[in-house]
Design a protein around this nucleic acid. Sequence first.
DNA 1: TTCCAGGACCCTG
DNA 2: CAGGGTCATGGA
Length: 269
Amino acid sequence: MKIRVIDFNLQYTIESGQFFGYKKQKTSIYSFALDKQLITIRQSKDNLFIDSNIPDLLSKINDFFDLNNNISELYKIFEKDLNLTRLLKLKGLRIIKQNPWDAIGSFIISSNNNIKRIQQIWHSLAEHLGENKILFPTPEKLTKAGETYLRRLGLGFRAEYLKKTSEIIYKNPGIIDQINNANYESAKEILMEFPGVGPKIADCVLLFGFQKYESFPIDIWISRIMSKLYFNDQKISNDEILSFAKNNWGMWAGYVQQYLYHGARIGLL
DNA sequence: TTCCAGGACCCTG
DNA sequence: CAGGGTCATGGA
């Protein structure tokens, strides 16, 4: 199937460290699970070519890649702020809409880890415990697998966190809806009660799993680049960065963050 | 060999 | 509240 897209870049979107459950087949050909089925996708100019027979594919692609969101407002922010003008080179990068539990589990794994190994662990979990060996395992599967099993898959100290958080959600699945229905601040508080979830991972989960676009995850890359761009390379607390992001970018803060993160990592800033 | 990775957690001063 | 050590693992 062929889908025409505007303001979308598949490579930037998939390879900007927000999503780990994909495999890159050749240059710029990706496969991942959409609606519980594996699809293969590539982009040529303004066309996406998708190998899949799942029903209602168009709306699911639009939903997953946030294609109904008009991000020209984001580009205006970049044009007005000279610190951000270079980020216009990343046009088409969008925030992927992930399954909430997938996002929680994925970013618990991300703690003090590198992207390559996060992906390795993600796929190892999927192959050993996930449905059809392609989906991120359910809370039930991870709870019953246990901490020792997860350690053998290479999770290290994160095994305890993932097991305990899985158990909480397995016993109280309604908490996902609670987070979804809560406002940003309340949702973040709920998430941070999960073992292994602090302020940064909570913000990632809220941004990538719950589409709360005002969240602004601060890792070491964001901390460094924000200090450089807006605070004269001085030491700056995360709280000050958060209020700066909220005041300047509001509901676009999450998008700005993702562009800053990817831009910093590829040496654009 | 040493250092680091999309941090969280715990303990000190 | 700020600042440090610790936690597994593998790649550079």
